[in-house]
Amino acid sequence: MGIFSRMTDIINSNLTSLLDKAEDPKKMIRMMIQEMEETLVEVRSSSARVIADRKTTGRRLERMRTEATEWENKAMLAIGKGREDLARAALSEKQQIEKEIDVVDQELLVLDEHLEHLNEEVGQLQTKLNDAKAKQKAMLLRQSSVESRIRVKRQNHKAALDDAFEKFERFERRVDNLEGQLESMDVGMETKEDLKSQIDALADDDSINDELSRLKEKMTKTN
């Protein structure tokens, strides 16, 4: 693609529309900025060559005009000396140079129009480049802002989770305390119950033994 067709494509492009369609807008705008900067360098180099050509052509035009004036002066001198033949020859040279001057004038007009066109397109391209850089800056600021907000939200979520776990642990400790209080009420009770049961068992044994002895005695008497 030629430099001027590429520049025209860039100038006529809609940055916002292109970025909306891009899979990676950051990468695309970075590439666009690089493309614009490279194109600007090439266009300015072309402008520099045109400016140099115009200066060269302008100097040639001045020399030709000076030469035409000199031939006119020579014709006037020849007329003054009565040499009309030489005056005619001098005027012929002058007319030839004037024809060349007309051609060079047209060349200068073309160069001037070319430069004016280049300047307009460079200005448009520079505006486009500034717009792209502004969008890139805004995009980076938005990214930084979003990342900061995400970090804050993560910290808030973490704090909320930590707070929830802390409340849950406090509730568990409260239940543990209640269970401890309940279990503390039974401390020592098991030992007392065991002792009472053993003593009662001894009393029961004595009662059974007495009853057994009575039955044995009764049976003996019966026999």
Rank of each mutant, 00 (worst) to 15 (best):
D112I: 02
G123C: 07
G123H: 12
E116K: 02
K99T: 09
D105C: 02
I97S: 05
V122Q: 11
G123A: 10
K128V: 00
E93D: 02
I101T: 03
E107W: 02
E98G: 04
E121L: 08
L115S: 05
Q124W: 11
E121C: 13
L129G: 03
K99M: 07
L115T: 01
S92Q: 14
S92V: 01
Q126D: 12
E100S: 13
L118W: 04
L115G: 05
L91I: 08
G123P: 00
L115E: 05
E120G: 13
Q124F: 11
L125E: 00
Q106C: 14
E116N: 03
L108S: 00
K99F: 09
L118Q: 03
Q96L: 03
E107V: 04
D105R: 05
L108C: 05
K128L: 03
D112F: 05
H117C: 07
V110I: 11
H114Q: 07
G123Y: 11
H114L: 14
E98I: 07
T127D: 12
E121K: 15
E98L: 15
D112C: 10
H117Y: 14
Q96E: 14
V104E: 01
Q124D: 07
L125A: 00
L111T: 01
I101W: 08
K128T: 00
L108N: 00
G123D: 12
Q106P: 11
L108E: 01
K128Q: 06
G123M: 03
V104Y: 01
T127Q: 13
I101D: 00
E107L: 06
E120V: 12
L109F: 12
I97A: 06
E113P: 01
I101A: 03
V110C: 13
E93M: 12
L108I: 03
T127K: 10
V110K: 09
T127L: 15
E93A: 05
E121V: 09
E107R: 10
G123T: 05
Q106M: 10
I97V: 08
Q106Y: 05
L91S: 08
G123K: 11
E120F: 01
L91N: 12
V122W: 01
D112H: 06
G123R: 08
D102E: 15
Q126G: 04
Q106S: 15
K99Q: 14
L111G: 13
E120Q: 15
D105M: 05
E100F: 02
D105A: 09
L108Y: 00
L125R: 01
T127A: 13
H117K: 13
E121T: 11
I97P: 01
E121Y: 06
Q96F: 07
L118A: 09
G123V: 00
K128F: 03
V103Y: 14
V110H: 10
Q106W: 11
E93T: 10
E107P: 05
E93P: 06
D105H: 01
Q96S: 11
H114D: 12
H114A: 14
N119A: 12
L118Y: 05
H114P: 06
D112G: 09
E116I: 05
